[in-house]
């Protein structure tokens, strides 16, 4: 809040007006969802059906696995990107962010063309007895594809914010590179990494376009929450709204939890 008022002082009425307008613009549709949900008698009933529970379970499992993959592969990669400055690395740096601007459906088509049964790797995969489309693995592929850039970008900025001198000094004092990373770099870059995790997880759990293209839509197998909402929308707006509110609450809880950790971490390390 303090920041908000400071900004208002600086910008005057323009700042205040834009703050109010934007807050309404974001708040009103979400409020409308909540009002619609609150007016339903069958709200709880809509949420206890087996397909809903299956979709919720699938969304939680796939997005958790996706985020672990993103962290596992993305962290070392972001560290290289943060320190490296060669031409190929700079090209890769831009390539990494491409999925952010691609329409998700295009990402889905691209994944089919690469990893689908008729895709570039299709024959090799089927030689191994693997067929990705229409599986939960395809859901995870789609989520990692669209979500990873958000984490890698945040992590790269986090690592760049740690002055190289600190790491150099730490190592001249005889601390091993791994211990330096674990005890110096990681805590300093921590808030950025957590922000990246929050963004990437949010993107993964809301993934729709690439999933329906690459993984299809089958209850209990590949139907995540966003796909269940879309399918419910075909028959009943009430069920779709109930599911949307459930997803909204879930997302808020995770983002708030991550926000709290970031704040505590952030103040502790500074």
């Amino acid at each position: 809040m303090r920041n908000l008022f400071r900004a208002s002082d600086y910008w005057g009425p323009v700042g205040a007006a834009s703050t109010v307008i934007y807050t309404l613009f974001i708040g009103l549709p979400i409020l409308a969802l909540l009002i619609k949900a609150a007016g339903q008698e069958s709200f709880i009933g809509s949420l206890t059906g087996e397909p809903v529970l299956q979709a919720l379970r699938l969304s939680l499992i796939t997005s958790s696995i996706s985020i672990l993959i993103v962290i596992g592969v993305g962290t070392p990669f972001a560290r290289i990107l943060a320190r490296g400055n060669s031409l190929p690395l700079r090209v890769v740096d831009h390539l990494v962010e491409l999925p952010i601007v691609l329409p998700p459906v295009v990402s889905g088509v691209a994944m089919l063309l690469a990893f689908g049964r008729q895709g570039i790797l299709g024959p090799a995969l089927s030689g191994l007895g693997i067929s990705l489309p229409f599986t939960a693995a395809a859901v995870i592929f789609a989520q990692v594809f669209v979500a990873a850039p958000f984490y890698i970008r945040a992590a790269k900025l986090g690592f760049q914010s740690v002055a190289r001198e600190y790491e150099d000094i730490s190592q001249t004092l005889g601390v091993s590179p791994w211990a330096t990373f674990r005890r110096l770099t990681l805590p300093l870059a921590g808030p950025s990494l957590l922000t990246g995790i929050a963004l990437a997880w949010a993107r993964a759990i809301s993934e729709f376009g690439a999933t329906i293209m690459f993984a299809g839509n089958l209850t209990g197998k590949t139907q995540t929450m966003p796909l269940a909402i879309m399918s419910a929308l075909e028959t009943s707006l009430d069920t779709a709204v109930a599911l949307s509110v459930l997803l909204l609450v879930l997302a808020l809880l995770v983002l708030i939890a991550l926000g709290l950790i970031t704040r505590r971490r952030g103040t502790a390390s500074l």
């Binding site: 489309p133 229409f134 329906i212 993984a215 299809g216 839509n217 089958l218 209850t219 197998k221 590949t222 879309m230 399918s231 075909e234």
Partner: peptide
């Protein structure tokens, strides 16, 4: 059992 997806 062979159905893998339900399209819109």
């Amino acid at each position: 059992d062979n159905v893998v997806s339900r399209e819109t």
